[in-house]
């Protein structure tokens, strides 16, 4: 059991309770111990930075200072919300990168009797810790109900893979971490082309028409790929794609119904947890039907294999880049 400092973020105690419950349910079997930062405050999302940069960073840094105080030998903060993760990582990055700026923020913290040493803690998202620290072997060990037959569109949104100050993800546009995790759960993973496109962010609040357009692009693309479930890693993405799917349908006169779940909810199912304890039922577009198929686990009736038309062999495709390509370049 490794202990991590845990920063849940505001959504986890209101709109994303399902995420909180499922995170708790899957971390235990994976040996991830979560020590919640005591008396943490809101990270300011994308809003405080818009108003006042220095107070915005000071607000974030109070959490880092608390975490440093309460670290007790641990070095890693896990933030499961992408916006919280990025804000914490960003504050640490700029305080470290720009010494004068770091001193200014610490001067503000000093007014509350606090201090943070830039670079002291590593801010990471839960997905990154599961892939790179815990490892997929450990995940596979825990799978008792493989998600066979469930077609999943892995959706990461923006703030996890970008700008990626810690260079923790395989790519800023098409990272494969979530795909690999879902494959390990036995699901059929779709190569979702829009996996890091924007969910609309706060545009649902300030320019709904623009937000609906972004949501529509994601949902219709997932639908065209016969997606059963979209999987997210962020409360904001989940909210926009799920709760606003209905309004988006009204806006475009469409009738999409694709359930949107947190990745930990599906991990929980695969680990054999009860759906009730994973926050199922709180989604607007019900995932009950999709999940019931996993539970039945009956092999799908074999369809007549389509008769393949004799196709011309076509031109060869370039091979996809491998991990070794990446490492070799780093050495160049």
């Amino acid at each position: 059991m490794s202990d991590y400092i845990f920063y849940p973020g505001c959504s986890m105690e209101s709109s994303a309770k399902a995420y909180y419950e499922s995170v708790m349910a899957v971390c235990k079997p994976l040996g991830i111990g979560l020590k919640e930062i005591e008396d943490w405050n809101c990270c300011g999302a994308t809003e405080y930075l818009s108003l006042d940069i220095t107070p915005a960073y000071a607000l974030i840094a109070r959490n880092l200072a608390l975490a440093e105080e309460q670290a007790n030998g641990n070095k890693t903060i896990i933030a499961p919300c992408s916006a919280c993760y990025l804000n914490l990582a960003k504050a640490d990055h700029y305080m470290h990168d720009d010494k004068a700026f770091g001193n200014k923020i610490n001067e503000a913290l000093a007014a509350g009797g606090m201090h943070y040493t830039p670079g002291k803690l590593a801010v990471r998202h839960l997905l990154d810790v599961i892939i790179n620290e815990v490892g997929l072997d450990k995940v596979k060990e825990n799978v008792v109900k493989p998600l066979a037959g469930l077609r999943i569109a892995p959706y990461l949104g923006c703030m996890l893979p970008r700008p990626d100050y810690g260079k923790r993800y395989s790519d800023t546009e098409h990272p494969d971490e979530l795909d690999r995790l879902l494959s390990a759960l036995g699901a059929e993973v779709i190569d979702f082309p829009l996996k890091t496109h924007c969910c609309g962010g706060h545009m649902t609040q300030i320019g709904p028409d623009t937000a609906f357009e972004m949501i529509h692009r994601l949902i219709s693309s997932a639908d065209a790929l016969n997606t059963d479930v979209i999987v997210t890693v962020c409360p904001m993405c989940q909210m926009n794609l799920d709760a606003f799917q209905g309004q988006m349908n009204n806006h475009f006169k469409t009738n999409f119904k694709i359930p949107v779940l947190f990745f930990t909810q599906l991990m929980g199912i695969a680990f054999g947890e009860k759906a009730e304890s994973l926050g199922f039922g709180s989604e607007f577009v019900s995932a009950a039907e999709a999940i019931s198929r996993v539970r039945v686990q009956a092999p799908k009736p074999a369809e007549d294999a389509p008769v393949a038309k004799k196709k011309t062999p076509g031109l060869p495709m370039p091979p996809l880049r491998t991990k070794t390509d990446h490492t070799q370049e780093a050495g160049r």
Binding site: D52, I53, T54, P55, Y57, A58, L59, R62, K104, I105, E107, A108, L109, A110, A111, G112, M114
Partner: peptide, 9 residues
């Protein structure tokens, strides 16, 4: 903290 940050800003 926020008050001080605003002054610094």
């Amino acid at each position: 903290i926020l008050q001080r940050a605003k002054e610094l800003e």
